[in-house]
Design a protein around this nucleic acid. Structure first.
Length: 300
DNA sequence: CACCAGGGTACCT
DNA sequence: AGGTACCATGGT
């Protein structure tokens, strides 16, 4: 039996936090619901009291692709039970309880994070949107709905020109995305095979790609392959770690890395995502005009 | 309007 | 090993 609609019962699920926490870049809020594209399917999601309601544009018989993406079947309580019992983690979980790590397509995740370097999340969304529109296949949408596009395949990117990619406003990231797309398209790296490897081996495979260093590799390991100990450290997480756990003296990069590997336990990747989202939503850089003005005057 | 953003890399001590 | 300039773009 196939249907255009499904209701997924959930507990401890925070859809808004999950979709806005900088893991995926294709979700748009429309009133009370969220619209996006997963693989080659347009999807509209809405959270109700005890369920997520999903709508598609074409009939679906097996919804596993969706529940797997949303990670609705995991044991949430056992995840946060393994977090360190300290004040920063307690505050982070209290602020966005139910935030989940998604399980995304490796290529889309990899390509998106190559485009993420020194970009704000809003801008990454804009670049990815332009990229899909320029290079991706159109997908089925409801009658009268604006056109939507699948994330372009590695081959679709690989045969593009660097100039065409730069037209999507990705700047100096264009050659990296192009070179990586070529390596994926011609089989120089097998993204599917990484799923069968252990975390460290998969990381070695990823960082050989142009434009992929430790941080981006960890994002892909965590958001696409589900390695729960991968711990991406971006500017926000670094700020959080220094402020919350090293208020006196700043540790060397190596010591900070060791700390992230030992302190946060078997679900450290999840803990990282809660810290990231907490920092971004609760410590907005509040700028005080008079102070800025004084600083500028002082600089002269 | 300066400052900064889910960084990586080459090149420098 | 650890620091630094540079890359391109636009949000705040």
């Amino acid at each position: 039996m196939s249907d255009l609609r499904i209701s997924i019962p959930v507990r401890d699920y925070n859809l808004a936090a999950t979709l806005t926490s900088g893991q995926a870049f294709r979700w748009q809020r429309r009133g009370e619901s969220w619209e996006g594209v997963i693989y080659d399917r347009w999807v509209r999601l809405q959270q109700n009291a005890e369920s997520l309601v999903a709508e598609t544009a074409e009939p679906v018989t097996d919804w596993h692709w969706l529940t797997h993406y949303l990670q609705t079947d995991i044991d949430f309580k056992s995840i946060i039970r393994a977090f360190p019992q300290d004040e920063p983690m307690r505050a982070s979980v209290a602020a966005c309880r139910g935030l989940r790590l998604l399980r995304q397509d490796p290529w889309e995740c990899l390509a998106s994070f190559i485009l993420s370097s020194t970009k704000q999340i809003v801008q990454i969304q804009q670049i990815v949107s332009a990229l899909c529109k320029c290079f991706g296949y159109p997908v089925a949408v409801p009658n009268g709905h604006e056109f939507q596009y699948a994330f372009p395949t590695a081959t679709q990117i690989a045969i593009a020109s660097e100039a065409a990619l730069r037209a999507c406003k990705m700047g100096f990231r264009a050659p990296n995305l192009l070179a990586t797309a070529k390596m994926v398209a011609n089989g120089e790296i097998d993204l599917q095979a990484l799923a069968t490897q252990d975390c460290e081996t998969a990381r070695i495979g990823l960082v050989q790609l142009p434009g992929v260093g430790g941080k981006i590799a960890n994002c892909v390991l965590l958001f696409a392959y589900g390695f729960q100990t991968a711990f991406p450290v971006d500017v926000w997480v670094r700020k959080a770690l220094l402020r919350l756990y090293f208020p006196r003296r700043r540790p060397s990069p190596q010591r900070l890395l060791n700390f992230t590997r030992t302190y946060f336990g078997p679900n450290s990747g999840y803990a990282q995502q809660y810290l990231f989202h907490y920092m971004r939503t609760h410590t907005r850089p509040r700028r005080i005009k008079s102070v800025e003005k004084a600083l500028r005057a002082q600089a002269k």
